[in-house]
Design a binder for these strands. Structure first.
Ligand SMILES: [Zn+2]
Ligand SMILES: [Zn+2]
Ligand SMILES: [Zn+2]
Ligand SMILES: [Zn+2]
Lengths: 131, 131
DNA sequence: ATCGCCATGTAATGTTATTACATCAATTGC
DNA sequence: GCAATTGATGTAATAACATTACATGGCGAT
């Protein structure tokens, strides 16, 4: 089971995010898509829900914003824990993955007998250029 | 330099969070403090800003809510990276710290020449009781 | 007393997200 | 063919979260 065919609205939202150079809020996406017939927030939120489900998009919790996934790999399988650096200067977001962190978190959480459903790792700061 | 004496509003907000059994949104805090003269969101947000600065309170980004810090240690010094498990069932939040994760993240981020200012780690799932 | 600083009070507004309800299209079963 | 189901969509209204702007009050330093 891979990613299903995207609907019209999902494709539009995906396209907007993919062509953006940084994260966008739902309302920013809405504005970008007004020319394509978008009128209400729900059109964006519904599309985002699916795109998040398919793993094509990530939500940045500390920003209330969304980015296209930049994983090199296919999305036929769930990718593990996703982490982000987020530059306060230029808004650049970099997605990365690390097996060691995933393992360590897994160990710590298991020690609490906690069952993980979703892990958020976001690092705010300044990128090389904006230091 | 330790934590300064809290102002009246800061004390009230801190008290509300400390006596709560879980995270509270700013507006929930506001409601709890109406009897003590709170009338507007800003009174809460201003107090929270300071409490966050002093490290007495943490913001849960994935919840838009706030919790009292449960560090055993004093707050005379910054504590390192803070992580949370957040149960979707009962709302229980557990704060924890891990040197290994901190180190590993530090390494990865340095490899990007990124300068960290604040790290968010939040694990949503179900606790032992709510499995 | 005057100034500067910080905490506070209040109102208005801005931003993010959800609920409720109606409609439409494709699919399934009869 | 045609009702029933399912999933996507459209629209409006509202809820939830956060900030801006401006005015006031307390208090220590000069
Ligand atoms: Zn990704
Ligand atoms: Zn930057
Ligand atoms: Zn803490
Ligand atoms: Zn629980």
């Amino acid at each position: 089971m891979g990613t299903p065919q995207l609907t019209k609205n999902q494709s539009l939202v995906m396209g907007a995010l993919a062509h953006s150079d940084g994260p966008m809020s739902a309302y920013t996406i809405l504005d970008k898509l007004r020319d394509h017939g978008f009128r209400a927030p729900l059109q964006v939120y519904r599309a985002l829900d699916k795109l998040l489900e398919y793993g094509l998009v990530h939500r940045l919790e500390s920003l209330n914003a969304f980015v296209a996934c930049t994983c090199p790999q296919d999305h036929d399988h769930e990718h593990g824990v996703t982490a982000f650096t987020i530059c306060e200067g230029c808004g650049q977001v970099t997605e990365f993955h690390d097996e060691a962190i995933e393992q360590r978190l897994s160990t710590l959480v298991r020690a609490q007998s906690f069952k993980t459903e979703k892990t958020t790792i976001e690092i705010r700061g300044h990128c090389k250029s904006c230091a």
